[in-house]
Design a protein around this nucleic acid. Structure first.
Lengths: 346, 346
DNA sequence: ATTAAGAATACAATCGATTGTATTTTTTTA
DNA sequence: TAAAAAAATACAATCGATTGTATTCTTAAT
């Protein structure tokens, strides 16, 4: 209740020995006899000693804490990535400070500052949609704090990244739409400031071209990919001259927005327009028709990013060379694209 | 790059003054002249000084950090609560350490220990499903760390809580089912170790009784309310002798599991069985038919919990009396319960 | 011009643990 | 048994900022 904070000095005094010996015993140093150690451990237990992590951190200038910056915690992909990060970090004895940029550049700068000031041992982050220049991202590196980018990265050469092969994911998704017989495929794209959306766009484009279809800019609808953006795009799609029969959305949320709008207008999915999303969020399996999408496995990404980061932290003096891990995407085929009869020759 | 860590002593040396003056200037103390302050600020800027938060924390024995423990970060309700917590905390100058108990008691005990050892200024938590005895929850209090429970609380008298009126929420939901003409309403309940599920159960029961319907234990299906639990319960429901025409689930996830199962068995929702959930998660609006549910507004809860906690932190010596905030639930009526013709007299 | 009052700054201890070096104690060897 | 080697423990500085007390420097009052 009161100020009953027991320090190593209290233990030392109680046993009439030096505090340095207590410290070493508590850290199980070989410089203390087993017998003494046991006396100290018993006394520490008895007195209810708890190491003051702050003092320890200051002395060792290590916090055993990782900083995480994501655009928005409540987005499923990010919350599942965080779950993976937290679990891996916890097992390795690290705490995790979590921050959200809310897609604001200013806030992102601020957060990096704060994490540096708090002397986190490393940072895992996914950049905001507003992030175009990367000067502030160097801040952590300059202070010797290793950083791993996941999902939304940027093209600074010496960076560590854990990414999905977004190009392949959207190539496959588009290819799948074509295989289902779609001739005119629209694309709901995200802000091109993010490489990720560039890659998804390129995958879409190349799949069209490689299948002998023309790429048409007027079938691309860029937005921030919120639910209402998807709905608005769907509205525009119905208004175009072209008979659009497929939509490849760069995320699930916009795809769902589009589907809801189309369903409201009695457009048959997939018969009239087939739809694919990207992320494999929890709603994609439940919506009707269920949404074909590309699995992004946030938890696995988080785990890999954390492992990579901890590896970098532990080898800091040796300056381990940076690494980029690229995960293989997998297409989850569901009803929203099932145009063809699966078994034509019964 | 190198060990270019500038301390207040470096600034002091550069200006040939004392480090205590530098410290005071940087904290804008009235004990330093404006002129001196400006010299110091300029120099600090010039030398790229950054306060060592660790040292400061140690001296002040305050970390400006809040600890958060939730069962699972990727559950929508919790991730949105965390979003609310993070935002409020950030504005007030606090960092947030986030941990997940994964519904394990052992891990929960561990995490509290860790947070206490890290000298967080306060804790916000939602207990795990395994938590039956509350001894470990006193740990933080004994160390003088104020704690606020949200959503999943426990009945220790002196606690701070931010809760939904779960009783009323489920009373209203059940009442709504009755108003729609349901005669035999089943309940998918959660572990009764959590007061929250007791309250939801009681609301259900009392609504039945107050409307003159009998409460029947055999219509209550308790589980951990995962999606498959909902599906299993639905299976059992179809197997009972009673003609069940309504389901009140204590959360959305199980409700959705049940709906998916019922849809697979060609049971018409709401005509044959009406369904309501609890939480208003993102999928509830998208599933077909859309799910009637009780809004739980995680973000608001998070915000309120944080404000309450910070209030408690700032008034610690005075021992502000504990507070319990109870939010009013609101029923979101959707298609899954729309049995009655809304306008019988056209 | 001298002293008291007040403002500005310097001194020094402190937060609690860690760690290189010095000293004491024990064990081994000649 | 004395000296050398090895083991165990004690001493003391340090991490960087904060803060109560002491000192110096201004300004005001007599």
């Amino acid at each position: 209740m009161q100020n009953n904070t027991i320090t190593i000095h209290d233990i030392a005094a109680a046993l009439k020995i030096d505090s340095s010996t207590v410290s070493r015993a508590l850290n199980n140093s070989p410089r203390v006899t087993q017998k003494t150690k046991e006396r100290i451990w018993a006394k520490a237990e008895e007195m209810g000693y708890q190491r003051n992590v702050l003092a320890s951190n200051l002395r060792k200038s290590k916090t055993n804490t990782l900083g995480i910056i994501v655009p928005r915690i409540s987005r499923y992909f990010f919350s599942s990535a965080i779950a993976g990060i937290e679990e891996t970090a916890f097992e390795a004895g690290y705490n995790v400070i979590i921050c959200q940029s809310l897609e604001k550049l200013e806030r992102e700068k601020n957060l990096i500052q704060t994490l540096v000031a708090n002397r986190v041992d490393g940072i895992i982050m996914s950049i905001s949609m507003e992030t175009m220049d990367y000067d502030h991202l160097e801040g952590a590196k300059k202070n010797g704090i290793p950083t791993v980018f996941f999902d939304r990265h940027c093209d600074i050469p010496g960076n560590n990244n854990v990414l999905l092969d977004d190009y392949k994911g959207s190539f496959d998704a588009t290819q799948h739409l074509i295989a289902q017989g779609c001739k005119n495929i629209a694309h709901l794209g995200g802000p091109k400031s993010l490489l990720l959306y560039q890659n998804r766009f390129n995958g879409y484009k190349d799949a069209l071209v490689q299948n002998g279809y023309p790429f048409r800019q007027e079938l691309v609808f860029d937005s921030r990919l919120m639910e209402k953006d998807g709905a608005e795009a769907a509205q525009k799609i119905l208004g175009t001259n072209t008979e659009i029969d497929g939509i490849f959305s760069a995320n699930d949320v916009a795809a769902i927005g589009a589907m809801q709008y189309l369903k409201g207008r009695n457009v048959k999915i997939p018969e009239e327009i087939a739809v694919t999303g990207f992320s494999n969020g929890p709603t994609s399996a439940v919506i009707e028709p269920s949404l074909t999408t590309v699995d992004q496995s946030g938890e696995k990404m988080g785990k890999l990013a954390t492992e990579l980061l901890i590896k970098q932290i532990n080898s800091k003096p040796k300056t381990l060379s940076p690494e980029t891990i690229i995960l293989e995407p997998s297409l989850i085929e569901r009803e929203s694209t099932r145009k063809k009869i699966t078994n034509p020759t019964k």
